[in-house]
Design a protein around this nucleic acid. Structure first.
Length: 231
DNA sequence: GCCAACGTTGGC
DNA sequence: GCCAACGTTGGC
């Protein structure tokens, strides 16, 4: 059931006894028109590069989330980038990952690293926007909640199996990058040995958290930023 | 440790 | 809604 589910970022929340996050719910925000005001203009690599100046900025990630409503044990697991934007501070915890490889990537994420927010299981799958890590891995509380769809009875409080991070909205993509487009490049690069030939989205089909700029994923971001394709 | 059965992911 | 891909489970 590796499947990102979020709700309010844990940090400063009052965490009541039976804290069912008020959010996470049906925020069927239909992309409010004014939303584009939040779009930042600089491209991600520019911002980070100037900031780190020489420091090595290797890691970008891809995080999948379902953009359309679907019930899992009676709970709607939808969480689109619009839902993230609607959260307080535009921040949410990324709960519900129940796959070891994906979890290990979550644990490798560092503060301020950026991730592409991918919409899965929907009409138009693809990359919708950019988010950043604002809290590094800590125990995913939903693994202990009996009525949570991602409850894991085998996980013990003194040795939690599953982790989550907090992410904050950064900006939308300048244009939505469809799965079809990504696949086209991936296919071409398989033939030519291009940078996206090993992109994990295709080689590790069901992995919900994946690196984009290291390992076998290829220099995804560099590829896009070095072509006429704007993101 | 093998592997068949089963469950989940996620595009189409 | 179908079903391919693939991770997990559990009998042996």
């Amino acid at each position: 059931m590796p499947r990102p589910r979020k709700r309010l970022a844990g940090s400063a929340e009052p965490a009541g006894p039976d804290n069912k996050g008020p959010a996470g719910k049906r925020t069927k925000t239909k992309n409010p028109v004014g939303a584009s005001a939040q779009v930042v203009n600089s491209s991600p690599q520019k911002t980070s590069a100037s900031k780190t100046c020489g420091k090595y900025l290797s890691s970008y990630w891809l995080m999948k989330s379902e953009a359309e409503s679907r019930l899992e044990k009676g709970v709607d697991v939808k969480f689109s980038i619009e839902d993230l934007k609607a959260q307080p501070k535009q921040t949410a915890c990324w709960d519900g990952v129940r796959n070891y490889q994906a979890r290990n990537f979550l644990r490798a994420m560092k503060l301020e690293q950026e991730a592409f927010f991918y919409h899965s299981n929907c009409k138009e799958p693809g990359i919708a926007g950019l988010v950043k890590i604002v809290k590094e891995a800590y125990p995913d509380h939903t693994q202990f909640e009996k009525n949570n769809p991602h409850y894991d009875p085998s996980s013990k409080e003194d040795n939690p199996k599953w982790s989550m991070v907090d992410v904050q909205f950064v900006r939308m993509m300048k244009r939505f990058i469809t799965l079809a487009e990504l696949k086209t490049h991936h296919q071409a690069h398989k033939a030519t040995g291009g940078p996206l030939k090993n992109m994990a989205l295709f080689s590790r089909q069901r992995l919900s958290i994946q690196p984009l700029t290291q390992g076998k994923s290829g220099p995804f971001l560099l590829y896009y930023s070095h072509t006429r394709m704007t993101m």
